[in-house]
Design a protein around this nucleic acid. Structure first.
Length: 268
DNA sequence: CTGGGGAAGGGGCCC
DNA sequence: CGGGCCCCTTCCCCA
């Protein structure tokens, strides 16, 4: 399975560990690194032709756009890390979109009728107005649906990748994504290509053996900060990732996943 | 089998 | 808008 998971999963931010201890350690990049490998080879960006990001007007309603429907935004509570696999589909996964009916768009009049039918207060004056097109609705839900299906979608541009189905709300995000297809940063030593210079820099450390991130608790050092962070978990009695059934903790989410898949949670 | 290290990929944020 | 950096996550491999 490729490692390309193109969309970041949004877990509960409260689960962010305290990394302050990492900040106390100065990271020194060896000058040798840059003397020996001065600049990454970055070919000309042929990739950003205009067709690469033709703005489109259809916007998926399943994404993480600020939804006016609070009831639809019931975030997964509490247990973010281990629940990553059951998170809602990524916002840009266009292949799985539209369970709410964009295949047969509802007219504004139909929306109003439906809103009135579903809301006992709909007979009151229409008091919910769209700030974009000034249409008024008698119910909040009616306005919300209107905004989701029409106005918000049309007021936003979408930049789509010509190499895959990904769409982005900003050109910058699209350009960055396209680098993952073109891999413009090439290692002079082994020829391996990377999407970003700092990825290449990290890779070059595998050639030089440089490990600028040291563990304050032992004498180990790491080339990658995230790997040091994972290592620091091994020094902690209470690990970051906890099984919700047996309360056993793990230093890595992957270990928790293995634990869950091994049957602990299934058996209950 | 489990835990941990190494390497890498990606989006978000800040300047 | 782009570059650099941060953080998270994953996969592979090994002890």
């Amino acid at each position: 399975m490729p490692r390309s998971f193109l969309v970041k999963k949004h877990f509960n931010s409260s689960k962010k560990p305290n990394y302050s201890e990492l900040d106390t350690h100065t990271v020194i990049i060896s000058p040798y690194l840059y003397e020996s490998y001065p600049v990454p080879i970055i070919p000309q960006p042929e990739i950003l032709s205009s067709v690469a990001y033709n703005p489109i007007t259809v916007w998926t309603t399943t994404g993480l756009l600020p939804s006016p429907l609070p009831n639809d935004l019931s975030p997964l509570s509490g247990y973010p890390s281990s629940l990553g696999r059951v998170s809602p589909p990524p916002p840009s996964d266009t292949s799985s979109k539209d369970h709410s009916g964009s295949e047969s768009p509802i007219s504004d009049e139909e929306e109003r009728i439906q809103s009135k039918l579903s809301d006992p207060h709909a007979i009151e004056a229409e008091k919910f107005q769209c700030g974009l097109c000034n249409k008024t609705y008698s119910t909040f839900s009616g306005l919300a649906k209107h905004k989701q299906l029409h106005c918000d979608a049309q007021s936003r541009k979408s930049f789509s990748c010509k190499y895959c189905d990904k769409e982005y709300v900003s050109l910058g995000a699209l350009k960055m994504h396209i680098r993952t297809h073109t891999l413009p940063c090439v290692c002079k030593i082994c020829g391996k290509a990377f999407s970003r210079p700092w990825l290449l820099q990290g890779h070059i450390r595998t050639h030089t053996g440089e490990k600028p991130f040291s563990c304050p608790h032992c004498n180990r050092a790491f080339a990658d900060r995230s790997n040091l962070r994972a290592h620091l978990q091994t020094h902690s009695d209470v690990k970051k990732y906890q099984c919700k059934n047996c309360s056993k903790t793990f230093s890595r989410m992957s270990l928790l996943h293995k634990h869950e898949e091994s049957g602990c949670c299934v058996a209950h």
